[in-house]
């Protein structure tokens, strides 16, 4: 899918996320919005998996390590045909529903459960190692939050991925700079992040994580890099898409009021319109 089509689609999916959150009376809207473009580009243009090939041993693997951004994952999985959007909206977070607030691998298209942070990368090391040792060509992807990088297990996984030369593994850091208590650099500093990953033996790509063409190019570039795993540091905006919530830590899991909903919906519609007309 070309960049313009993806841009237009992204605004439709942001509206889906907003509706899912409102229907379920809660969600992690800030990180959902910063994640959207990376996940959409990955699924549409790079990840080789479909509802028909969901059990194919040669399929690419994806693990959402920042599992709390589940509403964006739902919107993308629905768009890709794994799940039914109407059903997700009707049952998200409701009694007995499989559509919970974090990845549930009983649902089609979801490989592993998460929710606790710092699990995705080490699990993907195992998946990528299975591919390498088994002579498989599949690639393995994960997306982590930046606050998540304070978990020591992330760095155990990073060390191992480099040790085993897992160039079939690509991690994305949704570097929106905010976590629930405030700016990541105030809560627990990660910089110099690029140098940290490089010193752990990784290829590092830094991109504008709100830019669909930049993300698309980074995923393409990562496939060409060999010998080491690649991390894409995607510099994003928490709450991206509406000034009401952009760069605000208190929108980490804020439930929009009716007025806020209307404003955000209007902002998304305007951005979608602009995208459709090439602005």
């Amino acid at each position: 899918m070309d960049a313009k089509e993806l841009e237009v689609l992204s605004w439709k999916l942001r509206q889906d996320v907003l509706d899912i959150i409102v229907a379920g009376d809660g969600g992690h809207i800030g990180g959902d919005m910063s994640l959207m473009n990376a996940l959409l580009v990955l699924y549409e243009n790079h990840l080789r998996v479909s509802p028909e090939t969901a059990d194919d041993p040669d399929r690419d693997r994806f693990v959402l390590s920042k599992g709390h951004s589940m509403e964006t994952y739902y919107a993308v999985l629905c768009e890709m045909g794994f799940l039914d959007l109407k059903d997700v909206k009707a049952r998200f977070s409701k009694f007995g529903s499989p559509y919970i607030g974090h990845p549930n691998n009983k649902l089609p298209g979801i490989e592993m459960n998460s929710g606790s942070l710092g699990h995705g990368l080490p699990v993907c090391v195992g998946m990528a190692l299975a591919g390498k040792r088994g002579g498989k060509k599949y690639r393995v992807y994960t997306v982590m939050g930046d606050g998540e990088l304070a978990e020591g297990s992330v760095w155990e996984g990073a060390m191992a991925a480099a040790h085993f030369g897992l160039d079939n593994l690509c991690a994305v850091v949704d570097r929106n700079g905010l976590q629930i208590s405030g700016p990541t650099e105030e809560v627990m500093a990660h910089e110099p992040l690029e140098a940290r990953f490089r010193s752990f033996g990784w290829h590092v790509l830094e991109v504008d994580g709100n830019s669909i063409p930049a993300l698309d190019a980074a995923f393409t570039a990562a496939k060409m890099l060999s010998g080491k795993p690649t991390v894409i540091l995607a510099h994003t905006t928490k709450g991206y898409g509406s000034e009401l919530m952009e760069n605000r830590a208190d929108w980490h899991h804020h439930l929009p009021t009716a007025e806020e909903y209307a404003q955000i919906k209007s902002d998304f519609a305007a951005r979608k319109e602009a995208a459709a007309h090439g602005e």
């Binding site: 699990h119 699990v123 195992g126 998946m127 190692l129 299975a130 591919g131 088994g134 996984g157």
Partner: peptide
């Protein structure tokens, strides 16, 4: 790195 041990084990297992 016991945490990594168990997560990597699970990743391998998920791939058969």
């Amino acid at each position: 790195a016991e945490q990594n041990l168990v997560s990597v084990a699970a990743g391998l297992a998920s791939c058969g």
